[in-house]
Design a protein around this nucleic acid. Structure first.
Length: 280
DNA sequence: CCATCATGGATAT
DNA sequence: TATCCCTGATGGC
């Protein structure tokens, strides 16, 4: 793989864990990098050539995340919608801009300031009503300003369904932004068996889930990675933490807290690891 | 070289 | 619930 002309280190945190925290950090990064001056946009891969051409030369005026959905506004009224899906990445250019880049759907900027989007589930220009439809279908986003005040919405949504809490936490119409890693870690920290019916959670338990979610995901934005262990220490850790020390249960064999062998189930079609000793 | 898997979600059935 | 899509890291042969 050609590495000459590399402008930034590969394998950096930009490539990690696209849950809600990733998209919120990304929205901010794009704003800081590009807002206020005419932008250069292209589609090296060619699959977004028309969209890139329309953005090219306009000026970014807004960049915001709603759960895992990113919307970027330009001063000609264009709205760029990006969803990274499972494997998408949007990060500073790693290879030299002249290297063949058959997977780069969208490149914003040029030279050392370029950012590349690869593997997105969605990359498209949308009309205002399309954005509205997407955003209106989402549950409360723990990373938006009024998040704490949305607790009653969550209590109401959960008490209405007997689907397992492990499933509802992944349902973006119930909560926007939680992914498979946060789901497992939140339920662990709250001591809740992922198979329990959502409606069986007490108001206090839902309150705990919501406060935990907000706290963890805010940390995720700050550190640019998912870290759920030792929340009080994390402010000082600043990403120095070893990879295998960041989580309590996700993709582990033994509980990081009590050492029990973890149980693995499929809930809502996704794997979840949980501790039969710590979670009930 | 090839198969598998992953932090997600829309669509078909 | 199953299938498909998009990429790239990894491990087995």
């Amino acid at each position: 793989m050609p590495q000459s002309g590399t402008t930034r280190q590969p394998g950096h945190t930009w490539s990690s864990m696209p849950e809600g925290h990733t998209i919120h950090a990304l929205a901010r990064d794009l704003r800081r990098e590009f807002a206020g001056a005419p932008i250069v946009a292209s589609s090296p891969q060619g699959r977004f050539s028309a969209g890139a051409a329309r953005i090219d030369g306009t000026t970014m005026v807004r960049s915001a995340a709603w759960g895992k959905y990113l919307f970027v506004d330009f001063d000609d009224g264009s709205i760029l919608h990006v969803h990274l899906g499972l494997i998408g990445k949007f990060r500073p250019t790693i290879a030299a801009p002249t290297d063949p880049a058959t997977t780069v759907r969208l490149r914003l900027g040029e030279g050392d300031a370029a950012w590349d989007l690869t593997g997105p589930a969605r990359c498209e220009l949308v009309e205002p009503h399309e954005r509205r439809r997407i955003v209106d279908a989402l549950g409360p986003d723990p990373l938006r300003r009024n998040a704490a005040a949305r607790l009653p919405d969550l209590i109401e949504a959960l008490e209405r369904t007997s689907r397992p809490i492990g499933a509802t936490l992944l349902d973006q119409s119930i909560v926007a932004g939680i992914g498979n890693v946060y789901r497992a870690e939140i339920l662990f920290l709250c001591g809740i068996d992922p198979r329990r019916p959502s409606s069986s959670l007490s108001d206090d338990e839902v309150d705990r889930v919501w406060r935990t979610t907000i706290e963890l995901m805010q940390i995720g934005v700050r550190l640019r990675r998912i870290v759920t262990t030792d929340p009080e220490e994390i402010g000082r850790q600043r990403g120095r933490m070893r990879d295998d020390e960041r989580l309590y249960v996700y993709h582990r064999e033994h509980c990081r807290r009590c050492g029990s062998e973890l149980r693995t189930d499929e809930v809502a079609g996704r794997r979840i690891d949980w501790c039969p000793t710590c979670q009930h």
